[in-house]
Design a protein around this nucleic acid. Structure first.
Length: 429
DNA sequence: ATAGGGTTAG
């Protein structure tokens, strides 16, 4: 079939054994998923060294700037023993699914010879295979199954595109997307999302615009939430406004609080504080959730409006909404920028004691920044830490990173003393 | 059967 050949050609980099290693950068042992008792995917365990040129046809493959969850590590997410287990079940599943198909309720229909009904279960099984391989990072295997499928549904294509994007092959995913004859909104969203997450904002927005303007396809709320970070990255208030208008016109804004919250953030990042806070004010109170408040607090934080952020926090709390770690980060950042040291410390206390939230490096970063402006850095932080069993080592590392070797040294000493003090206590118990 | 992050320091 011509179509199949086209797909094959476009996937040839994936099917090229030389490119295999690229997908398993952390793999320290090689074995194939179906090698145990499958012959239809013949794998070699002795592959030539990676040849990046076979795949890097465009800079889009560059993983730099990608968010981490975008590039799960194959060897950590799927451990070798699990893989072997998986391999066995994959191979046996294949058989059992086929058996299942022959005993399924549609057996009579299949016997009647209706090709559509016969093909559907096969397509689904193979789609499942493509998905399984894609999720595990076995893109070559996924491509092979995909290529050899006699019949592919839109879901098959989407599943394969998902796999390619998940493992950083956005450019390749786009090529596959281009070959589709019937793209669903999921297909578009996937590729746009791939570009957004790899910081290819122009490509993301170009594709989004093509989808809406040329192909006349309506985005879903997921598509919009996907395109917002790209627009924020472009920093264009004009695009921000036009997308906002679109969302408003289609009713997204009214029916999905997530869209409104994301728009607040988008306006702020495009430098339009007034629009951001107006958008927030226009949300009916009963629809405001903690993310809405957090978003508006971060708008205040960006502009040194500490008082307003503190005030927002209090209103939010009174409304019975529970702040999370991000909420506290916003308010701490606002306190830091607004010079509200006492308030900032109070919020940090509240976070740890009242809400039992564990501060991370960003919270400490805010604290350091805040206290750094006021002087007295180390002792103040240690006061907090002593009360709440915080992480001295983390603190010490932060200070070392900031060039405060002397302070870091002192913290280590205190840590040692603390351990020395604690040990006898433990032995009594 | 397929997307599925509202908000994350400096």
């Amino acid at each position: 079939m011509i179509f199949s050949t086209m797909v094959f050609v476009s996937l040839s980099p994936l099917l090229n054994p030389k490119s295999k290693t690229k997908f398993f950068p952390n793999r320290n042992q090689t074995y194939s998923p179906l090698s145990l008792n499958s012959s239809f995917l013949n794998k070699s365990d002795h592959r030539p060294p990676p040849s990046s040129s076979t795949l890097h046809s465009s800079p889009s493959s560059t993983p730099q700037g990608c968010r981490t969850r975008f590039h799960p590590c194959p060897s950590s997410s799927v451990s070798p023993p699990a893989r072997i287990t998986h391999s066995r079940s994959a191979a046996s599943t294949q058989g059992s699914l086929y058996r299942h198909a022959s005993h399924s309720p549609s057996t009579s229909a299949m016997c009647s010879g209706d090709p559509n009904i016969v093909l559907q279960p096969l397509c689904r099984v193979q789609t499942g295979l493509v998905q399984m391989y894609s999720n595990c990072g076995f893109l070559v295997e996924a491509a092979k199954v995909f290529d050899e499928m006699p019949d592919r549904s839109t879901v098959t294509w989407n599943v394969f595109i998902t796999g390619l994007i998940k493992w950083g092959e956005v450019g390749l995913a786009h090529s596959v997307f281009d070959l589709m004859s019937a793209r669903s909104i999921v297909s578009w969203t996937l590729v746009i999302d791939g570009y957004t997450r790899t910081n290819q904002s122009v490509k993301a927005f170009t594709l989004f615009r093509k989808m809406v303007q040329v192909d006349g396809i309506e985005p879903t709320e997921v598509t919009l939430l996907t395109i917002f970070p790209a627009i924020a990255n472009l920093g264009s208030i004009k695009i921000c406004q036009s997308v906002h208008g679109y969302a408003e016109k289609r009713g997204f804004n009214a029916f999905d609080i997530r869209i409104t919250n994301a728009l607040i953030d988008l306006y702020a990042k495009c430098g339009c504080i007034e629009s951001a806070s107006r958008l927030f004010r226009e949300i009916p109170d009963h629809r405001k959730n903690s993310v809405s408040w957090t978003s508006v607090m971060s708008v205040f934080a960006m502009n040194g409006m500490g008082r307003e952020a503190v005030e927002s926090f209090e209103i939010m709390e009174k409304a019975g909404l529970r702040p999370n770690a991000v909420t506290f980060l916003s308010v701490l950042s606002a306190c830091s920028h607004g010079g509200l040291v006492e308030e900032g410390l109070k919020f940090f206390n509240k976070m740890v004691n009242d809400y039992q939230l564990v501060p991370d490096i960003k919270h400490y970063g805010c604290l350091i920044d805040m206290l750094g402006r006021a002087g007295r850095v180390t002792m103040k932080i240690l006061e907090i830490e002593r009360g709440h069993g915080g992480d001295y080592v983390l603190m010490s590392n932060i200070l070392t990173g900031a060039g405060r070797f002397k302070d870091a040294e002192r913290i280590r000493e205190m840590l040692d003393k603390r351990i020395a003090f604690k040990l006898p206590g433990c032995s009594v118990v």
